[in-house]
Design a binder for these strands. Structure first.
Lengths: 350, 350
DNA sequence: ATTAGCACTCCCTTTGTTTGAGTGCTAACA
DNA sequence: TGTTAGCACTCAAACAAAGGGAGTGCTAAT
């Protein structure tokens, strides 16, 4: 453990933080001395607190107030002081699995359940698959001058696009085109497609090069859509439950971040690029990659959905959030999503 | 016009409202007497104001304060007092048409532009098409045990679903199935499909009835998805710009409504069912179908996207919103969407 | 019918006061 | 030497009193 702090300092620090998590009020020496197990006088505690303050674990909001944990204090709490009580959390499972066949809906549902369960704001990012490959492509005539292109990617992500054409196609021509596209593109990664391939395809397609390039545009479209990632959120208004977040300034910033989602996307990227501690990470205050969360703590978990598809679940709340409960809940949800994957549930929608 | 009020009362009422729209502060008799064209003393105005208050157009927040327009006052303002100044508003057009090919993106963009342009919260509902008919349906083999069903509906809405099958299919069988499905289902309305049709289809399909019923399930799915309507929002945090909305209670309710979208859906339904005044409607306070907006005004417009697809654009702001600007902007946007439709722009995405 | 004037009301801000929780420091104690 | 009791001090929050100011209603004069 950390040798910087004595055992007694551990105890006191933990007591301060736990008390503050509950009440949200600065905690003073007298309060502590009453609720401590090995009875200590308030004076003793004051001395220790002064030391802890010097070391940067706690601070006073103003001269004659009680102490509040600093970011460093929270960090220490999360890293070492937090007890690893295991508790059951079945409720979550049942709600999750109700009639949610499409991944999109599962994730939306997950965000909601999570928000309801924790009373914090939550976000869930849809899985992003790096190294996506094309699995199947087909053009079908819908109308005299309209063709629909359907593209299935690895992970069974389906995309489609209506293509307007000037010329009329015979069934035969379509069949040929389909053949050509499938033989050429199947199994290719999305990144590889846009290169010299277009030229070659156009040549082979001869007169129908316009359709080909439209199809390739559709493929390009897919990449683009893939880039701005889908993020589902819920419970943003929970911030109003915590006075320290619900002054206009902070509330506005946080809710704005939830609305725009740009900042959340950065958070997701950051989470996905770090690989630690069973995929659960805790950002306290400024540790998060966005400024709007400077008064918050953010806890994120990554989940896997098979075939290299990974997404992020996140909980945003006040710094005095109930880390234990949150981390336990996230772990449960992680397992839950794993389970869905393993069960071979329906694949992701377009 | 309304004979209940004298011309002078009109003037005074209008002056009170316009002044309040700008400042957000209760407006007193002295303030008015200074800024009125035919000079009137504050005493005279006081008398008139007392009358206006008796008639319910204005009220005092407390005994010795200036007057504030009541809901009835705003209503009167919107209905009869508001001048119909026409102004140009080109900016909007340009922003809108930038590279937004898919309707979904157009609408998201519209909500954003609108919010930025007005400084209020905005919502745009995706078009709902009553009486949707099936235009084209196709099954294609993707994998050994997977088939993708693609369904194109009137208005070129595309849906798809992966179907897991136990048995392997020959190309021939698939072709037959496709033929069967298309001849039977094409041109049918969604509502009509789920009835006795299933049984008949299963008979004809013989051994492959499982696939058929799965496909029909997919169709059912489409109906379901169509039911919970898509709503895009933007600028919810704009409510913080108006002190009368940014106390925790109201702000929380409004933002929650924007997050859940359930209430917005009701608003959309209400708007779509009423057909008046060029499709622009104004809800003041309690006139809106949801309680959370009781401190707001809501202005909505309906737009058409051809083939009977209609959606709603809405602006939510304080009661003292700039009705003129808002209604002008909405009209412009309405025309803009019409234009996109007429231009034969890309059809809606899946 | 309009207006000037006056007394009155009520909110908001300022100012001062009190209260209480909490601290740091020193001195006594085991 | 570590712990505790006690005291002086600080500061935020809560409260009360006071003044200013914006606004009203009413009455009497024009």
């Amino acid at each position: 453990m950390n040798t910087e702090l004595s055992d007694r300092q551990h105890m006191i620090l933990r007591a301060i933080i736990q008390n503050y998590l509950e009440t949200g009020e600065p905690v003073g020496s007298r309060t502590l001395s009453k609720s401590m197990e090995p009875k200590l006088s308030s004076a003793t505690i004051r001395n220790e607190m002064a030391d802890l303050e010097d070391m940067g674990y706690i601070f006073q909001p103003h001269t004659s107030a009680g102490r509040i944990p600093s970011d460093k204090g929270y960090r220490f709490y999360v890293d070492t002081l937090m007890a690893d009580k295991e508790q059951e959390l079945d409720e979550l499972k049942n709600v999750m699995l109700e009639k949610t066949d499409k991944v999109e809906r599962v994730l939306k549902q997950a965000a909601k359940v999570l928000a309801a369960n924790t009373n914090y704001a939550t976000m869930v990012s849809a899985p992003v698959n790096k190294r996506n490959t094309l699995k199947f492509i087909q053009l079908s005539q819908v109308d005299v001058e309209q063709i629909v292109a359907v593209i299935v990617m690895s992970g069974n992500v389906i995309k489609n696009k209506i293509i307007d054409v000037d010329e009329e196609f015979s069934n035969e021509t379509l069949l040929k085109l389909n053949m050509l596209l499938n033989t050429t593109l199947n199994g290719m990664s999305i990144e590889a497609i846009n290169l010299g391939l277009i030229a070659r395809l156009k040549e082979q397609a001869g007169i129908h090069s316009k359709v080909i390039s439209d199809v390739l545009d559709a493929v390009a479209d897919i990449i683009q859509v893939e880039e701005d990632m889908e993020i589902y959120t819920s419970g943003a208004t929970n911030v109003f439950k915590y006075p320290e977040l619900s002054d206009n300034q902070s509330a506005q910033e946080i809710i704005h971040a939830f609305e725009e989602k740009q900042q959340l996307a950065e958070l997701v990227s950051d989470t996905l690029s770090n690989e630690e501690s069973h995929g659960i990470q805790v950002y306290i205050g400024d540790e998060a990659p966005m400024k709007s969360m400077r008064d918050c703590s953010v806890v994120t978990a990554t989940y896997e959905l098979g075939e290299g598809m990974r997404g992020t679940i996140g909980i945003i709340g006040p710094k005095r959030m109930d880390y234990e409960h949150v981390m336990r809940t996230l772990k449960t949800l992680q397992n839950e999503l794993d389970e869905i994957n393993r069960k071979g549930n329906s694949p992701p929608p377009s």
